[in-house]
Amino acid sequence: MEQSINFMEKGQNALKSLFSAGAYLKKSLIERKLLELVDFRVSQINGCAYCLDMHSKDARAHGETEQRLYALSAWRETSFFTDRERAALAWAEAVTAANVPETTFKRVREHFSEEELIDLTLAVTNINTWNRFNIAFPNPDAVGTYQAGQFG
């Protein structure tokens, strides 16, 4: 069965809250480069090709290196990431898996204020939602067409 709903076109009213969350997060205290890393890592976990394309391009546009993007799925085994980034990535993985151990919470609290942690959690849940829309209503022809900064 072909899943041919263009959710970006037909779902504008439903997607307003996701766009609003994205606009809010762009003004967050959390650095944009880190938010792009989180979006990219969650999209890796969820297997969302469109979001991987988008967030790799946006991450590069915000100064991210190829080396760090290539190593992101193995971030624990590298020295390329700061303690703050490691805490954010561990949090993103735990929230995505819906299993947040107390140790992960304590670790992330060492590096993020309460407001930042709320914003980080919003970022993780927002990208998870986008991933699920893109996976539910795939558009393989769109993968690779995103231009850095296209959506702001």
Rank of each mutant, 00 (worst) to 15 (best):
Q3M: 14
S113W: 11
T145I: 05
N99H: 12
R76M: 12
H62Q: 08
L34N: 08
D83C: 10
E85R: 14
E102Y: 04
Q147D: 00
V143H: 00
L89C: 10
T82Q: 13
K106R: 15
K57A: 01
T103D: 06
M54F: 00
P138R: 11
R76L: 03
L72Y: 10
I30P: 04
M8Q: 06
G47Q: 13
V100T: 12
M54N: 03
W91H: 08
N134H: 15
L15R: 01
E9H: 10
E102H: 14
L122A: 10
Y146E: 01
V108Y: 01
L120D: 04
W91R: 07
T129R: 04
N13D: 06
K10Q: 11
G11P: 00
S73N: 12
R60W: 06
I45Y: 01
L122D: 01
R60M: 10
Y146G: 03
N126K: 14
G144P: 03
G11D: 06
C51L: 02
K106S: 09
A97Q: 14
L37C: 05
E93T: 13
S20A: 15
I135K: 05
C48P: 08
T103M: 09
N128W: 00
A98W: 12
L18W: 03
K26G: 03
R32E: 11
S20F: 07
Q67R: 15
G63V: 10
G22D: 10
P138V: 12
R84F: 12
S79T: 15
A61D: 01
R68K: 15
N46T: 12
I118W: 11
E115V: 13
A61P: 01
E31G: 13
T104Y: 00
V42D: 02
C48G: 09
L18P: 09
R76P: 05
E31K: 15
D58M: 05
L72K: 06
T145W: 00
L117W: 13
R132P: 03
L35Y: 03
Q44P: 01
I30N: 02
